[in-house]
Design a protein around this nucleic acid. Structure first.
Lengths: 143, 143
DNA sequence: ATGCAAATGCAAACCTTTTGCATTTATTTT
DNA sequence: AAAATAAATGCAAAAGGTTTGCATTTGCAT
């Protein structure tokens, strides 16, 4: 299985193509879950492409401000990053095992229009996270 | 204008009634905006009831875990706390001046039911924050 | 190949929040 | 009302995540 050409994506944004940047993109593109800076740091090491943690943060910053990644602050603790697939997404977090499911649908459309009318704000976006227990955690916790 | 009896509220929760705790509750009950630990720290000083910042954090923790306050992590930066008025609320944050408006309505009801059905999660709650520009900031930024 | 601007590594700083411990305070017990 | 006890506070230090300054290395244009 061939890797996507992240080098090209970087070039299109006018960003320098470094192994580390391409690797971070690849890691996040392949990940089912949003990852923290430290998880990415460890995965880079696992891929024999170790980078300094501060470099990871700088890469995440630059990729986020170029809209190639999205930064999530679901927990209040450490930030998580996910590959930006350019679709509007929300997240369902399991309070038990902390796994995160991406949710494609969004119920906010009309609500935002109403809100704009009522408050006279221009609405630019929203952040919606949903919390619950996944099927596995519910099974394990109800003996 | 007489203060609410926060001492009684504390007693009902089985918490010790200290001046600082009552003052923190009073500050947040009177505030239009959610406040950070440091803002509360400063307001305590202004009220001639200075407390150590770590004490403020401990008070906020204990009041939050007793449901007297709610902790918000809107920005990803520092946590904000608001008096828990026992109603489901969301927040509209102005990206310009950072002011926060509390929103009473919530469009999530049916969506959560659908989601529970689709994912087999038990849905326990959600966090919805909306971002935009308030009327004042829109005016000032469009010269 | 050469030069320059940008990316990286490293260590230290930063900021918010938490913790350990001695002291003070609120509440319970006598 | 005083003494005993358990919890709250102050203080300083640590923790955890993230950022920054600076020397070195790398990517890219010339």
């Amino acid at each position: 299985m061939k890797d996507r050409d992240f080098d090209n994506d970087l070039a299109q944004k006018g960003l320098r193509r470094t192994r580390h940047r391409a690797a971070v993109l690849s890691i996040l593109e392949q990940s089912q879950q949003p990852l923290s800076a430290e998880e990415i740091f460890m995965e880079l090491k696992a891929r024999e492409m170790p980078a300094n943690l501060s470099t990871v943060y700088r890469i995440l910053d630059v990729l986020t401000s170029n809209n190639m990644l999205q930064k999530l602050n679901i927990t209040g603790g450490k930030s998580l990053y996910e590959y930006n697939r350019m679709v509007h997404r929300h997240h369902l977090l399991c309070l038990g095992c902390k796994k995160i499911l991406a949710i494609g649908s969004c119920p906010l459309g009309d609500f935002e229009k109403d809100l704009a009318k009522k408050t006279d704000f221009s609405i630019e976006g929203h952040k919606l996270d949903i919390y619950g227990y996944c099927p596995e955690c519910r099974k394990n916790d109800s003996p």
